[in-house]
């Protein structure tokens, strides 16, 4: 079955959505990410959607679900790269993605995750 690749980088899982997702592909990503968070002991998930020229209510709901499920599994999710036209359209559509943290690009997304996640000795790392 067609799947979107998930990369592991330390305690983070990185996803870059490069294809126009049909609904089942989005649901597969949701299932795969929740399983990989547990299997890889991941603390953070970064999803880059800068290549998506459209986010409809279905994809928006899947992104929101991923953020909520990862939080229940003690991981933070940041969605990066939302295009301005996509943001405008989402709001008009009535989708506000209440559970999702966002950042403008991958660098600031990773920096945000580093701030959110405690370091291995238990202290919050606020260097970045």
């Amino acid at each position: 079955m067609e799947r979107i690749p998930i990369l592991k980088q330390g305690d983070l899982l990185l996803v870059s959505v490069q294809v126009d997702m049909h609904d089942q592909l989005a649901l597969n990503l949701q299932d795969d990410l929740t399983q990989r968070i547990v299997r890889d002991n991941a603390r953070g998930v970064l999803i880059d959607i800068s290549a998506l020229d459209m986010v409809d209510s279905f994809i928006g709901r899947v992104l929101d679900n991923i953020a909520t499920m990862s939080r229940i599994l003690d991981a933070e999710t940041v969605v990066v790269g939302i295009q301005p036209a996509v943001a405008i359209t989402l709001v008009e559509l009535g989708i506000t993605l209440p559970n999702i943290r966002t950042a403008l690009n991958i660098e600031s997304g990773i920096a945000l995750l580093r701030r959110l996640l405690p370091t291995p000795d238990g202290d919050a790392d606020d260097q970045s």
Partner: peptide, 29 residues
């Protein structure tokens, strides 16, 4: 994809293209 292509050909700006493509996705579903 077809909606995007025709919206471009019709001269719609990027935001309007995105809006009708998103509307098309909702209605097709």
């Amino acid at each position: 994809q077809m909606t995007r292509s025709l919206a471009q050909q019709s001269g719609l700006n990027l935001v309007d293209q995105t809006k009708i493509v998103t509307a098309a996705s909702e209605l097709a579903r």
